[in-house]
Design a protein around this nucleic acid. Structure first.
Lengths: 350, 350
DNA sequence: AGGCTTTTCGGGAGCGCTCCCACGCACCCT
DNA sequence: AGGGTGCGTGGGAGCGCTCCCGAAAAGCCT
């Protein structure tokens, strides 16, 4: 037995891949019949279908995407647009979840995921040119900051588009997938109130993101429902260190706080660390509620009470929405809003 | 001023984009000349070039990628292959860094990034078919586990390929970008030894990853160099919880340990938590060294001594390597190995 | 100035595929 | 038995582009 017995004949040459014509003659049918057999198989006799199928395997035939695209005017790919500075992508588990979910939705279709990460200004024009250039059949935009004007711009191009996270401007009627962030905030407030906590504060997210604003609005509404005075609100940046810093300022403002709602699990972890740093016990002295139910919540040993945010599922739903939007263009699609659910753990209930 | 004054003429219709022929007649030249003017501009008179350039702007012309691909046999895209179960992608910051870096390298070229995440078995065949089907001009493979046989398989196809992380089988001569993990492990050992620590243990990574094995080998070599007895080695899975669990077992084996090297920052955080959970102080009782210098190391307030691992830069280097491999196929390219550097913080030096 | 090379240009062909249309054949209805 | 009505099939055209090659224009030499 020789170890390298399976060396190919012409190294590096890469034999030309078989064409549809090759396939057809190998199967003993015409190019047209072969094409029909490959796509959907309607109006093809069982015999011809079988012959083509066999030939595909025998020749290792793969249709040439470029040729197909040229005539069908379909690119066979969708773009995932992430309009964020790269550094942010690094830390936030959100994007990994989005990629995973969208990818999941695309599995089974023959659509490929093209990643479009665009930084500030100039680059976003490039991205836009690419999108409207017909190079993709649709786009999923991770909608985040108020400044991005993707909505109106993309809305005008007619390119099937789905947003993940409610965009600021929903007027264009572009479909989106979102979590009921308002209800999530309300649940957090109600939960803390039901535990008898009365001095409640929040480490909120950036004010230019709909998700952060909704969570805060819900939180305040929940406090009002419970008949509680709203405590201080500090805006963080959704990161752990940002959460810790916000907690520090918060404690300076309201040393007697006994319940904190952090608008993300990452920030909640920072908050817990900061609290412990001051000698406070969680949850005995201060109960903490996070947001996202991200796996990382378990990382400091303390189970974190949090609002579930099924990011992968939501991204997958966005992918499916896009696929069906591509399938039936022009049809109106309603937004999909996932309900919020509270997951109670040791950071509020010992 | 009417708010919706900029509505396009035919909503949803999407006017047909101009073809090269349109462009040529608008510029008053032939299709061929227009084509030449667009690609490289050699053998085109200044006058013709200017006319074409003007027409491009006037018409908003974008070349049809599919048509171009069909004749040039270049896809205009590269694949990023991530052969991991999706769940893993979620937690590990590594992949976000890879995506960021590769994307950075591709900026400036007209290559697009196509994401190929393939799960176990069946799916990997699909991925492979896609890669060898000529749908991309090259591939970057995040090489991780021993089981993946991408190396030999891709090596045979002749598709330009670069690995991130040294693959198990380097025989095929496929270029890769890696960190000097061995040296990183050795630095950790030397550092702890130089602090007078004598009972040293390691929470290593999975044994089927070259990075984990190299770090461990370097660690053991460093201990030998310092004349120290190697302490227990527990294998974790590069996650925080895995690190905490490993630390628990490690303390059972060697309660008197005064220095621990964790093969990733995530695991190091788990280790620190576990140590504190037993009442041990870091670094007074036990010094801890991590690996990666990931931003998350700051998350628990304690600065973590760690080995720098410039993942974004490395991924970017891999992207550049791939671009040049596509430019000059068949040419041999040497692996790129980044040096390891120790970053000393409070987890070892108070 | 005549013949030469060099430079610029335009038309034709064809990449691999899908779609349209027309043709043949089996089948069923009256 | 004759004329439908299907379904299955094959050939032709053409998607938008690049490349090849021959023609035209411009430059150079002796």
């Amino acid at each position: 037995m020789n170890a390298n017995s399976s060396r190919p004949g012409t190294p590096g040459a890469g034999r030309p891949s078989p064409t549809l014509e090759n396939l057809a003659s190998a199967a003993g049918v015409s190019r047209s019949t072969a094409s029909r057999a490959i796509n959907g198989g309607s109006k093809v006799s069982a015999k011809a279908q079988a012959a083509v199928d066999a030939a595909i395997v025998a020749l290792g035939y793969t249709p040439n995407r470029a040729a197909r695209s040229l005539v069908t005017r379909r690119a066979g790919s969708v773009a995932l647009v992430i309009p964020e500075p790269d550094a942010r992508v690094m830390m936030d588990p959100y994007f990994a979840a989005v990629i995973t979910g969208v990818n999941e939705a695309l599995r089974g279709t023959d659509l490929q995921l093209v990643l479009l990460m665009s930084r500030a200004g100039d680059d976003s024009a490039r991205t836009l040119r690419y999108l409207r250039g017909g190079h993709v059949d649709g786009a999923i935009v991770v909608s985040h900051h108020r400044a991005d004007d993707w909505v109106e711009t993309l809305g005008a191009t007619g390119l099937p588009t789905v947003f993940i996270g409610r965009p600021w401007d929903t007027g264009a009627g572009i479909p989106y997938v979102d979590l009921d962030n308002f209800e999530g905030g309300r649940l957090a407030a109600r939960h803390l109130a039901s535990l008898g906590r009365t001095t409640l504060a929040s480490v909120a997210g950036p004010t230019d993101m709909t998700a952060a604003v909704d969570r805060l609005d819900g939180w305040l509404q929940g406090l009002k429902d419970a008949g509680l005075q709203p405590g201080p609100v500090i805006h963080g940046d959704f990161t752990t260190t940002g959460g810790a810093a916000a907690a520090g300022r918060l404690l300076a403002q309201a040393p007697g706080v006994d319940g904190i709602f952090a608008a993300s699990d990452l920030m909640a972890l920072g908050v817990v660390d900061a609290l412990r740093g001051t000698g406070r016990r969680v949850p005995e002295d201060v109960a903490v509620v996070g947001f996202d139910n991200h796996a990382i919540q378990a990382s400091n040993g303390l189970g974190l009470t949090t609002v579930a945010h099924p990011m992968v599922d939501m991204a997958s739903a966005a992918g499916q929405l896009l696929v069906s939007a591509i399938g039936s263009p022009g049809e109106h699609m309603d937004p999909v809003v996932y309900p919020a659910e509270l997951v109670v753990r040791a950071s509020t209930v010992p």
